[in-house]
Amino acid sequence: MSPIVLNIENMVCPRCVLMVEDLCKNLNIEIKKVELGKIELEKEVTGSKKQKLAQELEKIGLSLIESDKKSLINAIKTAILHQIYYSDKALQVNFSEYLSENLHHEYSYLSRLFSASENMTIEKYIALQKIEKAKELLSLKKHRISEIAHQLHYKNTSHFSTQFKELTGQTPSQYKKNPSQERKMLDSFHQSQDFETK
């Protein structure tokens, strides 16, 4: 029997997982597990309880996803965020293969769906997320720029520096000296045009 899953939009960090677990417990919803982007249930939730869950999720900036296409877009984002922010292992394949294998769809389909919904390509979304992670690492001032480039799996430091400047208007060195530029929330990129490439 296939698992009963509710897909949740905007779950981007481990803290979101804990909040959703608490919320389900308070609503007496029996869960098997909660992961980034989804709740796996012991049994189906319907009617007023599902409506209450949706309302409570909205209060903490999350939302239930009802459409299959929206669920798939959320799964793409979750897979990318997980790899960039939370995985200790470097990808052994490129992102297109990683997404295709994990989400069981041809990459060309995922790419078209994502671009149509988010007004940016998957590649652009990946680049933006890498730059946000780089900003976090640069602001800690514990890592050399070459180490950050390596950690984020850039081909070389030059490629990292070029992309960083293209998307932020500063070099990594400039940002490291004065990390005053506001960082973006992980789930806010499709709502903003701040990072259009020049």
Rank of each mutant, 00 (worst) to 15 (best):
K25F: 10
S100H: 11
L62F: 10
N26E: 15
K50Q: 12
I73H: 12
N74Y: 14
N94A: 12
L99V: 12
V93H: 06
N74R: 15
G37R: 14
V12G: 05
L110P: 13
I80Q: 04
Y86Q: 04
K33C: 05
K32L: 07
L41G: 00
G47W: 08
T46A: 05
N74G: 13
K69C: 05
C13M: 07
E97A: 13
E30H: 08
A90L: 09
S111T: 04
D68A: 10
D22R: 12
L62N: 01
I39E: 03
Q55D: 10
L41K: 01
E44M: 06
V12S: 13
G37M: 12
K25C: 05
Y107F: 15
I80K: 06
L62E: 02
G47H: 08
Y109C: 05
Q51M: 15
I80F: 10
L103E: 04
V20H: 07
L81P: 03
D22L: 06
L81R: 13
S111F: 12
I39S: 01
A75C: 05
L41D: 01
Y107L: 09
Y86I: 03
G61V: 07
V93D: 06
K59T: 04
L91W: 10
E44L: 07
T78A: 14
K49W: 02
I60L: 03
H104G: 02
I60F: 01
L72I: 15
G47K: 13
E66Q: 11
C16M: 04
T78M: 14
Q83P: 09
Q51P: 01
N102I: 06
V34R: 11
E21I: 11
V12F: 09
C24M: 10
E21W: 00
E58N: 02
G61R: 04
Y109L: 12
L99R: 13
E21G: 00
A90N: 13
V12Q: 08
Q51W: 14
I29Y: 09
Y85V: 03
V5P: 00
E97V: 14
I31C: 00
S63F: 11
Y109S: 11
C16Y: 03
K33E: 14
L62Q: 01
C16T: 05
C13L: 05
L62C: 02
E58M: 00
I80T: 08
V45Y: 10
V93W: 01
E21K: 14
L91Q: 12
H82L: 07
K89H: 06
E66H: 12
H105L: 06
S87T: 01
L99D: 09
I8C: 02
I65N: 08
K33M: 12
L103A: 08
C13T: 11
Q55P: 00
V17W: 04
L57K: 00
Q55C: 03
N102Y: 09
Y98T: 07
F95E: 07
L72S: 10
K89I: 09
Y98P: 04
Y107G: 06
L64C: 01
E35P: 01
K59S: 10
A90R: 11
C24D: 04
K77I: 02
I8S: 04
Y107D: 04
V45Q: 10
L72T: 15
I8W: 11
Y107H: 09
K77P: 07
S87K: 02
S100T: 07
K50R: 15
M11K: 06
K33V: 08
G37W: 14
L110C: 13
I80V: 15
L81Y: 05
K33H: 11
V20F: 08
N10G: 05
